[in-house]
Write a protein that binds this DNA or RNA. Structure first.
Lengths: 341, 341
DNA sequence: ACGAAATCCGGAAACGTTTCCGGTAACGTT
DNA sequence: AACGTTACCGGAAACGTTTCCGGATTTCGT
């Protein structure tokens, strides 16, 4: 069942059928209807590869997900998938490891599959213009915006939260409640990643309230936001007998891991120690105690990411950067510092 | 940069280059090397659409994910993605809602994109041969095998756990520890889904130990395995003052939701009430108390699913059904029934 | 040394579209 | 009545591959 069969069945030419299918203007109403009918009854579906070949482009969008350990990205991915679908594009997905090069992956994917655009989810994305050059299609970085100056604003698009500000607010919240000795579990400190931004924000909040960050209270747990590593990190802080009344974890899942370590060391949350995090994944509303966390707008992030990508493709949008607001979701894991401390 | 350019640069014909690229035997070693070199230095990448067109097939595998609420599927999806990648295929992904028709989605996806195969993740998959007919390529159902007789074994492939047996074991474990009044939170009871299988298994375990399932202890929470609904269900059981010493939840996340309801009603886990579940997702090892659960082999499920699909495509494998073992992961949420009960 | 078989390679058709170009017919304008 | 415009449609090239077919060259057995 090809376009030729439809043409023959309608007694028109192949070009006419093609015109109808792509709703071009110059075809008469009766003919259009007839063709559409034939397509309908025969259940004809155009051959994508043939179209892609002649147009030398496809209708596929590439999504490269990195750091899949984080449940937050799974959530964003779902809305991304839905939006791509809704727009009539196809999604081709690739997960990469923490150490893989997302740009190289993206570029080769793009050339093989003739992708129309690329969406990077949860990557570090600290690349120079030269490294980005091989990518021949629009792309947007979801959940990360480059703040380190290696990229000009107009060179790429992004949708993210203000990681620094969000971390600032989280820590500020603890300080407001009287906490001054706050432990931190950071996947990394200075790799130009989201972690670094959050770390900076956290330190800024401390300093703005006259508290100097104490190295004894900081543990670097490895780049993956994963639970076992964070659990270990929390244990290290506890085992060296550090003095603290609160913990700031860089994600919900790592906060949950930290809480386990705390409880196992006899520190009840929140009675003996408060815990705050960033993410707002579903499960953190159900753990015990429920997690106090800075909620990222999952839905909007996926939707905006796709919207920007499509606008880049279809309307030539460039250098667009959307920063989404976060909000505090109070849970049971935070309380004012107790008198005795 | 097309195959023609490579041919010209090497002073050979287009067909020869094509032969080299598809490593056909009949090309001399020097020529082969020369072509390969040219491909390397020019960074030539063949045009997929052209190849797909002439072969009238692609290298894409479709993955249709349903019931994305369940974190377990997110985990499987990752290994599926990795395996597809490793085998040199491309993955096109579509999430569908709980009420959507996965077979229709799959079939249209297949025809548009000329997919080589389809993998259904977490679907209900209770279809008749007639409904399956539109699918023109091999497919495998991941995480579900049809036990209701509408499909012959040789009509499809699957990889799953023995849901009935796993639920049986979970409940049996509770019974062994003295529990006789066991509440159940079932997404659904009789829709030919995984839930029904687990429900049956649970009931069988009860009856085999001389316990008649008590409707007062059973709540149907809706098909989505989602946390708010399960939380509500647990509350309903609690609010009607039902008498029970343990809860069997059909998934880890729903168990976590149930635990929240229990705690909020002043029932401590596991002191006042044991909780057991099925899944074994990462986070359930970190919640408080850690969840006792029947672990599904995530890794194997993804790997086997893809392997079977590829064997179906490349070697004509048919009617293959792999049933993966589950194992009990003891946690802190279960303990023997206390004397006073 | 001769024919047959094997090896290697080029030509060309084919895959199913889109799109440019040109042609016909109807229509309105002067 | 002649001409320019417009609306509609068909023909054919082009997209970049794969693969069949057949020709040329080499190898081999006798």
């Amino acid at each position: 069942m090809t376009i030729k069969d439809i043409a023959k069945a309608c007694g028109v030419s192949v070009s006419t059928v093609s015109r109808v299918l792509n709703n071009r203007p110059d075809v008469s109403e009766p003919v259009r209807r007839k063709v559409l009918d034939m397509v309908e009854v025969n259940g004809y579906i155009p051959n994508d590869s043939a179209r892609d070949l002649v147009r030398s482009r496809s209708d596929a969008l590439g999504v490269v997900v990195r750091g899949s350990g984080n449940l937050f990205f799974s959530a964003v991915l779902k809305t991304v998938a839905r939006e791509i679908d809704r727009a009539g594009y196809t999604m081709v997905l690739r997960y990469i490891g923490e150490d893989d090069d997302e740009v190289k992956t993206g570029a080769s994917l793009e050339r093989e599959k003739k992708l129309r655009g690329l969406l990077f989810l949860g990557g570090r994305f600290d690349y120079t213009p030269a490294e980005l050059a091989p990518i021949g299609v629009p792309y947007v970085c979801c959940s990360y915006t480059n703040c380190f100056g290696s990229l000009a604003e107009e060179d790429y698009c992004s949708v993210s939260i203000d990681d620094q500000l969000t971390a600032y607010r989280a820590v500020e919240r603890l300080v407001e409640l009287g906490h001054r000795r706050i432990a931190m579990l950071a996947p990394s400190l200075d790799d130009r990643s989201i972690s670094e931004l959050r770390y900076k924000g956290a330190c800024a909040a401390l300093r703005d309230h006259g508290i100097e960050p104490d190295p004894e209270l900081i543990e670097v747990t490895g780049g993956c936001f994963d639970m076992p590593d964070t659990y270990e990190g929390m244990c290290r802080i506890l085992n060296r007998g550090a003095d603290f009344t609160a913990v700031f974890a860089f994600s919900d899942t790592t906060a949950i891991a930290a809480m386990k370590a705390l409880e196992e060391h006899g520190r009840r949350v929140p009675e003996d120690c408060s815990v705050i995090a960033i993410d707002g994944i579903a499960v953190s509303e159900y753990v015990n105690p429920t997690l106090t966390t800075m909620v990222q707008p999952t839905e909007e992030m996926g939707r905006e990411g796709v919207r920007i990508l499509l606008d880049s493709i279809e309307k030539g949008l460039r250098g667009c950067h959307v920063v989404l607001p976060t909000r505090l979701r109070p849970g049971g894991s935070v309380r004012p510092v107790s008198k005795k401390d």
